[in-house]
Amino acid sequence: MTGPQPIDEATTPRLPRHVKLRFDEARGAWVLLAPERVLMPDEIACDVLKRLDGKTQLGALIDALARDYEAPRDLVAGDVTELLRDLAGKGMVSL
């Protein structure tokens, strides 16, 4: 397989085993840990990452976020898809 992985609403994004989301006391912030990489997701990205339970499909994830943030579904869909695609490109999310 070559090129970026496809992503649609039936995709089930998850954190690969070697990627860890953890609250760091010293910084008072959430950190996403992968080999030789540390990301500090902002509040919303963090919320998205916490919802990646390996079972929820992207469509359902977008529904839930749109509801909880009282935001238009299209807007949420665009932002979340872009976030996940970006993280997948960095090897920090599996699609």
Binding site: T2, G3, G89, G91
Partner: peptide, 10 residues
């Protein structure tokens, strides 16, 4: 470019 999403190259 070719392996984006599959292999991260540093």
């Amino acid at each position: 470019r070719i392996h984006a999403g599959r292999l991260v190259i540093d």
